[in-house]
Write a protein that binds this DNA or RNA. Structure first.
Length: 492
RNA sequence: GGCGGCAUAGCCAAGUGGUAAGGCAGAGGUCUGCAAAACCUCCAUUCAUCGGUUCGAAUCCGAUUGCCGCCUCCA
């Protein structure tokens, strides 16, 4: 039975969806004014994994994730760069898609843009006005927070505490400092659309109410996003949507924890961040995905950066995930090579360790998508594969064969859920080698030539020459791995 | 000031009442001409501290200490 932690009730709840076997999910997407960083990646990797897991259990999922392409920050950035805000947004939507592709984040089923949903947004605002919870002032429309009784239920706040803590400069046209804009009157040179209140553009929160309900209905199943969106963004979404539609909005709320850098919140406003592109230059994107999945999604995740002078920044946590990713692919590659010439085995039992690990994986995922816990049985599947390959006497021949065949199948299934090992293992490994060779200025052809020379020496039982070649290669960081048939190599 | 979270081995980390998963590092071993890889074994009588509840607590309650987040754009 799948259970998930619901921010609204602050408890793990059984997932009881609106329609049996179907899940509708909306996740707040990025505001596209700059490149994404690791914190953004976490949200989309987490919810991608949620969707992947739900689908793997046979549920039909409809996943909507928007792009905020109309926003103060986009306008400000475009003005700095002297370009059109909509063009700037398009540029970063593309960059976002590229970054997510590299992290194996699948596209959402619907990826709506604010700029293409202004009429729907206007309609929702009109409904709120009809409900008496919105007021206009000089072409700007505000939501009247105090008119909505349940305001604060998601974030556990009460209005008076908020008021005393408000540090924001009060907009004099608001009736109450807590009120927020549904529609903003246009300033010269800004993107704008016609509306009953004159030319203007949507406020930030209203877009999600309009687009989620358009594609999923009002009482859709799961609404997700980063922790920081709980207040005020999601609180405001609830207030608006309930005011506009008169019914409860979204059944479950899921929020992921932050990514910290050297134990401090990673944030663009403080400059304390690395873009994904900077990180991709240092480690495989898949290692980053593994790193993000190695901590329960609601807990904060910390990564450290070390300054290595000329070598530049290094990220020990990501490098550890990189080593693990290499181990996964090396095992998969060996498994593939072993099974490729084999005929599929017949029906029959497999080792119970395999079934137990597979079961543990599902139980961990069923418990609030606990990928960190699920990685333990995943590691057991790899260890079992290696053991069966290296230690043929570990199991009787037929059992061994069936288990290895089944392991390949299960690892594919598990990888599809986690969004890992999506690349052919041999491709991954050869690319890793090429990249490393280029970084170190070593010519792979030369390495191959030396390996051939060593093989000849070994065949002649001239071990001192063989060892000299090993030493020669080692001085350039090349590590040799002999097996019965061939010699593989890599960088230490 | 208000609200909330976290504290588990050298490091990362799972674990919300039944006697501490997993990874990295480390030690020993198997295999190997040597080595690497892989595999095997070992590595927290104990979960920030102090009290309490319970037959039983890392898990529940109270207090203390330390760290972090939100209350303003933020993933």
């Amino acid at each position: 039975m799948l259970r998930l932690f619901d921010t609204l009730t602050k408890k793990k709840q059984k997932l009881l969806t609106r329609e049996d076997g179907k899940v509708s999910i909306y996740v707040c997407g990025p505001t596209v004014y700059d490149y994404s960083h690791l914190g953004h990646a976490r949200v989309y990797v987490v919810f991608d994994t949620v969707v992947r897991y739900l689908r793997s259990t046979g549920r039909e999922v409809r996943y909507v994730r928007n792009f905020t392409d109309v926003d103060d920050k986009i306008i400000a950035r475009a003005q700095e760069r002297g370009m059109d805000p909509m063009a700037l947004a398009r540029e970063f939507i593309e960059a976002f898609a590229e970054d997510m592709d590299r992290l194996n984040v699948s596209r959402a089923d619907v990826e709506p843009l604010v700029s293409e949903h202004v009429p729907e947004i206007v309609e929702v605002i009109e409904r709120i006005q009809e409900a008496g919870l919105a007021y206009e002032s000089d072409g700007t429309v505000f939501f009247s927070v105090r008119g909505h009784e349940a305001y604060g239920k998601l974030s556990g706040r009460n209005l008076d505490d908020l008021r005393s803590g408000a540090r924001v400069e009060v907009d004099s046209s608001k009736r109450d400092p807590l009120d927020f804009a549904l529609w903003k009157a246009a300033k010269p040179g800004e993107p704008c659309w016609p509306s009953p209140w004159g030319e203007g553009r949507p406020g930030w929160h209203i877009e999600c109410s309009a687009m989620s309900t358009k594609y999923l209905g009002v009482d859709f199943d799961i609404h997700g996003g980063g922790m920081d969106l709980i207040f005020p963004h999601h609180e405001n979404e609830i207030a608006q949507s309930e005011a506009a539609f008169g019914t409860a909005f979204a059944r479950y709320w899921m929020h992921n924890g932050f990514v910290n850098l050297n134990a401090e919140k990673m944030s663009k406003s403080t400059g304390n961040f690395f873009t994904l592109r900077e990180l991709f230059a240092k480690v495989e994107p898949e290692a980053i995905r593994l790193f993000l999945l190695s901590v329960q999604y609601r807990h904060p995740i910390n990564f450290t950066v070390e300054d290595h002078g000329e070598e530049g920044a290094r990220f020990p946590d990501l490098e550890e995930a990189q080593v693990r990713t290499d181990y996964f692919y090396e095992t998969l590659c060996k498994l593939e090579e072993l099974l490729a010439p084999m005929k599929p085995p017949g029906e029959g039992d497999v080792l119970p360790e395999l079934l137990a690990a597979r079961q543990s994986f599902s139980e961990a995922m069923d418990d609030d998508f606990n990928t960190a816990a699920a990685l333990a049985p995943t590691g057991e599947l790899f260890r079992l594969a290696n053991r069966l390959m290296e230690e043929p006497t570990f199991a009787p021949k037929k059992l061994r064969r069936r288990t290895l065949w089944r392991l390949r199948h299960e690892l594919t299934a598990v990888g599809d859920v986690l969004g890992l090992w999506q690349e052919p293992a041999a491709d991954y490994l050869s690319r890793r080698l090429e990249v490393a060779a280029r970084c170190r200025g070593v010519d792979p052809a030369w390495v191959e030539e030396r390996i051939a020379a060593r093989a000849a020496a070994r065949a002649a039982r001239d071990f001192s020459t063989a060892d000299a070649i090993r030493q020669e290669l080692a001085e350039r960081g090349v590590e040799l791995m002999d097996s019965a048939q061939t010699t593989r190599w890599r960088f230490a």
